[in-house]
Design a protein around this nucleic acid. Sequence first.
DNA 1: GTCTATAATTTGATAGAC
DNA 2: GTCTATCAAATTATAGAC
Lengths: 188, 188
Amino acid sequence: MATEPANTEDKILDLAEHLIRKNGFNGFSFRDLASGIGVKSSSIHYHFPTKAELGRRVAERYTDRFLDQLGPLEEASADADAVLEKIRHAFELALTRDGQMCLCGVLGAESSGLPEPVALATRRFFERVSGWLIDALKRTDWGNQQTDRAIEETATRTLALLEGGLLLARARGMAGVFDAIRPERLAG
Amino acid sequence: MATEPANTEDKILDLAEHLIRKNGFNGFSFRDLASGIGVKSSSIHYHFPTKAELGRRVAERYTDRFLDQLGPLEEASADADAVLEKIRHAFELALTRDGQMCLCGVLGAESSGLPEPVALATRRFFERVSGWLIDALKRTDWGNQQTDRAIEETATRTLALLEGGLLLARARGMAGVFDAIRPERLAG
DNA sequence: GTCTATAATTTGATAGAC
DNA sequence: GTCTATCAAATTATAGAC
């Protein structure tokens, strides 16, 4: 079984991520973190001087974890539909394991009201995940027969579908909504 | 040309909608509204006693306007792809006309941290738009050959794609991102 | 690394004059 | 219907003791 996070810094990051995904970046305070962890808010500031810095760190950690889950490009399947299923699974985990939306989906929605470092880290999530998907698709049998532009548009459509699927699942009560979210079939 | 909103109440609703779509529900204050309109914050409270009530009204007005734009079911096309193009166009307008995300997409993202009346109005948006799309698809030639379940899943996928498309367009800087967002083709 | 204490500002909301 | 004045609470953040 998973053990408790060892140190305060990890506890803060964990709880901050949970609260942002639940309520948005403007929907939690340093005192929420403090009381949830059992320390004082000044201790949070010791680890993360500003809220913007904390938000940036949360977003970067989330992005790294997300890409870890996708695995290295070299190990991606040569079957385009398997690639789509892999990334679909990564998004579905946000719902089944955490019962929440994608962190960067939440941040993206409020992005024009975010501190610059947080908005930037959010953009980086989409750049990196989109980059992974495009490169993985290019390496498939299907991708070999497509223009770069067609591949990029398929990647955009796929990410939009998956982020939107999480959004709908949350906004509507999240029953089996995500089950209908299946990317288009590419090979066949 | 469009004239200025006549009364204070409309001005408040307009600015509140703009600010929510820009920064989220927790990203604006009564004083932001007041200074933007040129009155005092107590005047905002005169028209909308609580922030929750204001949010609910903004969401309901947005939903009504959105459905108006889709038009009555009776006038919807018998061609399924034309129906999808119609709803795609409604979402694209949010981007091209307002340069912003869908109001209820923003609210949906932070929905678990919203006052109940606002969360409820947000759910209602998705129920009503989803209901329109399902009913419109059922009336098409394509829909006549499909199970209810297949139609409902197509509606869910379409809405997810469009909401996610707006999310990506915003998170990434909104260049031509939405151009790649085209619903699946149903009839041929 | 955590605490107490506190500063400086902002927030949603109300009372009462005009 | 808008104003002035104000409140109580919450917010991000800092200084300094332990």
